[in-house]
């Protein structure tokens, strides 16, 4: 059954702040094998003009993915998560995420399309710091594959 179009434009309440720690950034950078000193050495980050260590470009997904869980788990929308795959992902940055940030995400459903029986959901997560300044917006497309035989 196609997803309800009336969900297009729906925003979810901002998430509770996620506090970005230096060691979390280090853990993430090591997990992707990225030795750029801007992620682990505050002095190196400062030499590039950042107030503290910054996070790798895809790190915001850790926070926005969690926030998008509100959409995925919304019983009224009724997405079958076991059939969902990640179609595409884009980030538009005002500045890099950095240690000490307290980030809140506001998730909005931008579009719902039906393509070849698959539900294609475009979701936007706008990330702001605790002074209300925009940090990054993450755009993700989730594709819910049609069950076999339908």
């Amino acid at each position: 059954m196609p997803l309800d179009q009336s969900f297009v434009g729906r925003s979810y309440p901002p998430t509770a702040p996620y506090e970005v720690g230096r060691e979390k950034i280090r853990e993430f950078a090591e997990a992707v094998g990225d030795a750029n000193p801007a992620y682990t050495d505050a002095e190196a980050a400062k030499a590039l003009g950042h107030p503290d260590v910054i996070a790798p470009p895809t790190f915001p997904f850790v926070i926005t993915y969690r926030a998008a869980g509100q959409v995925v788990a919304d019983p009224e929308l009724g997405l079958d998560y076991s059939r969902v795959v990640h179609g595409d992902q884009r980030f538009a940055y005002t500045r890099p995420v950095r240690a000490g940030d307290r980030l809140s995400v506001t998730v909005t459903i931008d579009s719902i399309k039906s393509l070849a029986g698959n539900d294609v959901l475009s979701v936007r997560g706008e990330v702001h710091d605790d002074s209300g300044e925009h940090v990054v917006t993450a755009y993700m497309t989730l594709v819910s594959r049609a069950p076999e035989g339908e």
């Binding site: 992707v32 094998g33 990225d34 750029n36 801007a38 992620y39 590039l48 003009g49 950042h50 910054i54 790798p56 470009p57 895809t58 997904f61 795959v85 990640h86 179609g87 595409d88 992902q89 884009r90 980030f91 538009a92 940055y93 500045r95 890099p96 755009y139």
Partner: peptide, 30 residues
Amino acid sequence: HGMFTMAEAVRVVTDWTGDPGAVVEYGVRF
């Protein structure tokens, strides 16, 4: 994870610029 591959790919860009903060937009399709 698609996001793992996405994280690896952008290293070609951030290793080039030196400053990962120079990336103002980054997108991929899986």
